[in-house]
């Protein structure tokens, strides 16, 4: 049996761990509220933009001279997987789940004979670097970002668009964790380039915007050309916001569990410590009594 002192030290150590996890949980809870609010605030813009793009795209879709962002490059060979993860760990299975989703997709594509490249937005996606050392095209440093701003998303999206224009890939898919609730975050993959029918909300496309005679200034094509890159940016922005909220939710849970486990452990160690202490006292008493009787 471990010595009394060792047990005591161990219990103290678990106690301080518990203090840390408890603090982290509370910080995550506070940050979660803010991140959730940011995600909610970003929704009206994304929804309206989506509706307009959908209605314009359905009017112009398939026509000649349509932007490659809508029509695609005509090929389906090189896939770029944009993996959005967090900058910090200790968030439970949050990053693992996103990376796993991306990896599964990558294996599928490779099995189909496609070329897969990765764009890592977030530090914790870097495990992919070990798995696919030659497929990483970029991993911008996002560690300085405290709260996600539209500018941050724009930097990432602009980089993507530049690479697309340069013909580096044909299809881009974005992986992130959708925020369902504080307890549930769902890793999702979504095609962002070219704009697919699946990413455009079917409800939005059905909205009767196109019914009325709408005047366009400048032409419909020009507006669409300007809106499509912006739509990519907004998708990236939305993913980053959702991710930020999911990360905090996931961390809150992980830390809640860790705190509970530490509590259980402290209880167990305390019992063990008290037993050992009592055993030591009993032994000592027996020694004294038998010593006294022997006289």
């Amino acid at each position: 049996m471990a010595s009394l002192k060792a047990l005591k030290l161990r219990r103290e150590s678990v106690k301080s761990t518990q203090k840390i996890t408890k603090a982290m949980k509370m910080v995550a809870a506070a940050k979660l509220r803010r991140a959730q609010e940011a995600a909610t605030n970003g929704r009206p813009y994304a929804e309206r933009l989506e509706r307009v793009v959908a209605s314009l795209a359905s009017r112009l879709g398939g026509g000649a001279g349509v932007s490659p962002l809508l029509a695609g490059t005509g090929k389906d060979q090189v896939h770029l997987l944009v993996v959005a993860t967090s900058e910090r760990g200790l968030a439970g299975a949050f990053n693992t789940n996103i990376v796993r989703a991306a990896r599964r997709r990558a294996e599928d594509l490779i099995a189909q004979g496609k070329t897969v490249k990765f764009f890592l937005a977030g530090k914790k996606g870097r495990v992919l670097r070990r798995l696919y050392p030659n497929a990483i095209v970029a991993d911008p440093d996002l560690s300085g970002i405290k709260t996600v701003g539209f500018g941050d998303a724009k930097a990432v999206a602009d980089d993507l668009l530049r690479r697309y224009a340069a013909g580096e890939f044909d299809v881009a898919e974005l992986f992130y964790a959708k925020f369902v609730s504080a307890l549930v975050q769902e890793p999702v993959g979504q095609q962002i380039i070219p704009v697919s029918a699946a990413t455009v909300n079917p409800q939005a496309a059905a909205a009767p915007v196109a019914d009325a005679v709408v005047e366009y200034e400048p032409s419909e094509e020009e507006i669409l050309d300007e809106l499509l890159p912006r739509n990519v940016t907004v998708q990236v922005f939305r993913a980053m916001l959702e991710n930020a909220a999911s990360e905090q939710g996931s961390r809150m849970n992980a830390m809640e569990n860790a705190t509970r486990n530490a509590g259980d452990m402290i209880k167990r160690l305390s019992i063990q410590y008290n037993r050992a202490r009592q055993a030591a006292i009993t032994t000592e008493l027996v020694e004294i009594i038998s010593g006294a009787e022997a006289l």
């Binding site: 200034e217 400048p218 507006i223």
Partner: peptide, 19 residues
Amino acid sequence: PGTDGDFSVLEGHAPFMST
């Protein structure tokens, strides 16, 4: 401030879209 010039919108304006 539209791309092709400023325009003002009052109530009952015709459907319109501009950058």
